[in-house]
């Protein structure tokens, strides 16, 4: 479990995170949602240890991150997989080399063992015969799948995804969402997704944390989100006509 307690973070005197507390549980897809500028990315970077925070604690399965030594932090990070918004694939490496990279850096496996594992995870994300392509030759959806493959290749305990389906067409976005959820169930990992895509919220939001102006404004699941009266959430989630109709249908169905 990832336990976040009272996180405060400021930039040049401006408080971006104002005391966020929440938990992210094993085997669940946890979504952090909110408008642009609400502090989602900063919050995720704090979770990953990329940003230092002024106050509060983040503990990974009981280990408080800020209390860990550099070596312990390094070991913990080896257990984290991350899918970046822009995929962040190393453009000087082929797709197979990108996926193999964490194995090369953190394991003592032989080359054939690493190749087998790379084959397995690439097959798992439905990428066959893409091994020798360069990232620049792959489509946006393929790059996201490679990024997911690279994130899970070293069997992480924690998977973080920053807007994994941004820039993708709706069909590919759903494929990526489902893939992340399947992987979360299959490997029983803690998945935290940063998103403002409402399809993702409705599809895979087993736990949703809604941020507004650096505060946690609401917390619940995809089922609760239809029922909530929290104005900040409803303004955000039902901002489009389509979502308003979806909610209306849901309410009428319940009647």
């Amino acid at each position: 479990m990832i336990d976040v307690k009272n996180i405060h973070k400021s930039f040049s005197g401006v408080e971006v995170l104002k005391g966020i507390s929440t938990t992210f549980e094993k085997g669940k897809t946890n979504l952090i949602i909110g408008q642009s500028g609400s502090g989602k990315t900063v919050f995720m970077k704090c979770l990953l240890g990329l940003f230092d925070y002024e106050e509060g604690t983040i503990s990974y399965d009981g280990k408080i991150f800020s209390n860990l030594t550099e070596d312990e932090k390094r070991n913990l990070r080896a257990e984290i997989g991350m899918v970046f918004q822009g995929s962040a694939l190393f453009d000087s490496m082929t797709i197979a080399e990108n996926v193999m990279f964490p194995l090369k850096m953190f394991t003592k496996q032989s080359k054939s063992e690493m190749e087998d594992r790379v084959d397995f995870v690439l097959k798992r994300v439905n990428l066959i015969d893409a091994h020798n392509k360069m990232p620049s030759e792959a489509s946006g959806g393929m790059q996201k799948r490679v990024a997911i493959a690279r994130a899970i290749v070293n069997k992480p305990k924690y998977l973080f995804c920053d807007e994994p389906n941004s820039g993708l067409d709706p069909k590919t976005a759903i494929i990526i969402d489902n893939l992340i959820q399947e992987i979360t169930d299959e490997y029983q990992i803690i998945t935290v997704i940063n998103s403002h895509d409402m399809n993702s919220v409705m599809e895979i939001g087993e736990k949703i944390v809604f941020l507004k102006d650096g505060l946690k404004a609401w917390e619940g699941s995809k089922d609760n989100i239809f029922k909530t009266d929290n104005k900040a959430v409803t303004d955000f989630v039902y901002s489009s006509e389509l979502m308003k109709k979806v909610r209306q249908m849901y309410i009428e169905e319940k009647k």
């Binding site: 990329l50 913990l76 984290i80 991350m82 918004q85 962040a88 190393f90 453009d91 850096m105 953190f106």
Partner: peptide, 17 residues
Amino acid sequence: GTMRVTEQIDALEVMGI
């Protein structure tokens, strides 16, 4: 610089490198 812009450096840091 391009690695910084495209978050490749962040990817290395997250991996603990």
